[in-house]
């Protein structure tokens, strides 16, 4: 007798756990007129819960040593490598050719490794000791902005997603991600990768659902410090920019493009979600001759 296949239930990812949406709603995106799965239609309250999880994880994640964060990002790549087959089939199910799916998975793994390497270098390269005129030691270094909302690209469910998440978390931010609406499968499978790769719960939270419904809740939330927007709707951009004003969220826009391109690998994407902090401290100037004493 033919064995009955076990179908995967796609849930959302909040605080390291996989709850169903609190709304109980779902939607079924279609590829070539075929539904590809029952996907959680997340609600305003899911956004809220995810932000709470991201906020409570943020100081701990930023507080880890940069080297440790680097190893954790590398670990994500390792685990992803081991799950290639699943991503391969999901990408194909979402309409990708076999060759393109393989290419996308390879690039995704490499991208994680690229950003893993920056974790403990970005402040080294872009920080500075500033030669002020007075007798002070003055240095500038970057700190993570905090909780970042990510509106992940619509057209690239794995590589696009990871290209947005990796630079954000590399520096110690945590994030709440709205996955591609029509191609959400890889995002939840990627959440399963995260859950098994030493990334503390809450560092990455992934929601699936309707952009139109959820965008404003990302934009309005007063405890979201920045938004990384990866789509191309001018209306959505303006909406976000307007909503962001209440708490002066930083809005960064990288409209969709070819994620296989090398330009998605640069440290400036990390710096976009960091704040420059400058610290001053006096330098005592008592010399052997006592000239300023």
């Amino acid at each position: 007798m033919e064995r009955l296949e076990i179908l995967k239930t796609y849930k959302i990812y909040i605080g390291g756990a996989f709850p169903r949406t609190e709304s109980g709603r779902y939607y079924a995106p279609f590829v070539n007129k075929t539904p590809i799965g029952n996907i959680c239609l997340s609600s305003r309250k899911d956004v809220r819960n995810a932000v709470v999880a991201a906020r409570s994880a943020q100081s701990g994640w930023a507080g880890k040593s940069a080297a440790n964060r680097s190893q954790i990002l590398y670990r994500i790549a390792e685990i992803l490598e081991g799950r290639r087959a699943q991503f391969q089939s999901e990408l194909e199910l979402q309409g990708s050719s076999k060759a393109n799916a393989t290419k996308e998975i390879n690039a995704t793994i490499d991208r994680l490794i690229y950003f893993a390497g920056w974790c403990d270098k970005v402040t080294q390269v872009f920080g500075s000791v500033n030669p002020v005129a007075s007798s002070h030691f003055n240095f500038s270094t970057q700190e993570p902005t905090g909780v970042v909302g990510i509106i992940a690209p619509e057209d690239s469910s794995l590589l696009g997603l990871v290209s947005f998440i990796a630079p954000v978390i590399a520096s110690g931010n945590t994030c709440v991600v709205l996955a591609s609406e029509n191609m959400p499968l890889c995002s939840i499978t990627f959440a399963e990768v995260l859950a098994t790769s030493d990334v503390p719960g809450g560092v990455v939270n992934i929601l699936t659902g309707n952009t139109k419904e959820l965008l404003e809740h990302f934009g309005k939330h007063m405890d979201v410090n920045a938004i990384f927007y990866g789509r191309s709707s001018d209306d959505e951009i303006k909406k976000l920019q307007t909503l962001a004003i209440d708490n002066l969220k930083r809005i960064k826009i990288k409209s969709e493009g070819d994620y296989l391109n090398d330009k998605w690998e640069n440290p400036y994407l990390i710096l976009d979600f960091m704040e420059v902090k400058t610290t001053w401290h006096p330098i005592e100037a008592i010399s052997a001759t006592g000239s300023v004493y």
Binding site: S134, S135, H136, P282, E284, A285, V292
Partner: peptide, 8 residues
């Protein structure tokens, strides 16, 4: 005593 503060 902070010397730079004294000078200020």
């Amino acid at each position: 005593i902070d010397q730079v503060g004294i000078l200020d």
